[in-house]
Amino acid sequence: MTDETKKKVEDKIVGLVKEYAGKKRFKPIDIVKEMEKEFASEGLTKDDIKGALKEIMDEEKLVYGYAGGSFLTLPENQ
């Protein structure tokens, strides 16, 4: 995966969580499946997307929350 594609995936994931903030809770696996479909034409694997998600979490663009199951959400200051 090129840096450019990775950036696109990361922006897409963060954008999706922002767009649905307060309306829908995304499980990490939902996001991975969604991105797999979205970037199918670019040949991205599940592991590529998991890698991109890992970087998002490490950079704290998103954080994990828990309500019966784990989900991705925006950090509290956002």
């Binding site: 954080v63 994990y64 929350g65």
Partner: peptide, 16 residues
């Protein structure tokens, strides 16, 4: 139960 509790970079290990 639940909510946001954790340490940087980890999505697990703290039970809120």
């Amino acid at each position: 139960h639940g909510g946001m509790a954790g340490v940087k970079g980890y999505g697990a290990g703290m039970v809120g």
